[in-house]
Amino acid sequence: MSFTIARTVEDALAAMATGARPIAGGTDLVVGARHGKAPLPSALVAIDRLRELKSCERTADGVSIGALFTHHDIETHPLLTTVYAGLADGSALVGSPATRHVGTIGGNIMNASPAMDTGAPLAVMGAEVELRSLRGSRRVPIEQLWTGPGRTCAEPDELCVAVHIPAPGERANSAYLRLEYRRAMEIAVVGAAAFVALAEDGTIAALRVGLTAVSPTIFTGDLLGQVGRSVADAAAVAAELSSQQATPISDVRASDRYRRHTVGVMARRAVEAAARRAAGETIDIPVNRAIGIGAAS
């Protein structure tokens, strides 16, 4: 194996152009290699010292989060924990404090696990991923990024440098929660995110739901038919549709039947929580703890 440390983004892109793979926190890459899931790449370029990828800035139409922003950065960021609350819900559930301090949003997205906790909230918020190579830069809607479990549409020389999320607008917010058996170092059994915009009379103006760990990639859908209906009605429909459209697998953590049922429950709760936030209520990050999912301490 060869290993270099990039001092600039251009260093990293040049190394990737010759076949090196990027490493930041290594929480997926190194752990996966030690599991025998995939050997370490023959050439690695460490990108974790690239300061310019560690920022989080408001933009004219939302927020831009550098690829090296960690889950800990996200779960403690004043803007992300309020306006983009669903993302903070997801990051706050990842691994343990040690995982959250080194694990990055860029790594979570590009690892493309169907069970990733930031994927569903980013998808329902309409996020775009910025990919850069020596050949140039492009933005990809995040749902188009994932092409299968562990696979993305990024070319081997493209580095994820940022995630851009549009501002939710007035009376709109998001929430993400997951079913888990323990409260640390857990992977979502199933999860659901919702983005809800409310009309002035409190009915649904926009509703989008994203599902975790029930299909080869994060599953998302617009529930256009729910516009104008009450939050309670829309949440019930979201639950039913989520269970219907999920195509989960059975594995050591749950059977497909159990996942199909519980993802509906998660979807209903995600819609309810996002709607409460959209109406101005503050629910602590992560929603999972606030509504008591997971064993009590």
């Binding site: 290594g26 190194v30 460490a46 040690a98 301090h101 080194v102």
Partner: peptide
């Protein structure tokens, strides 16, 4: 100053 699981962190990093 930040906690890291050293079993799964490359020493060169």
């Amino acid at each position: 100053g930040q906690p890291v699981n050293s079993c799964s962190y490359l020493a060169v990093q």
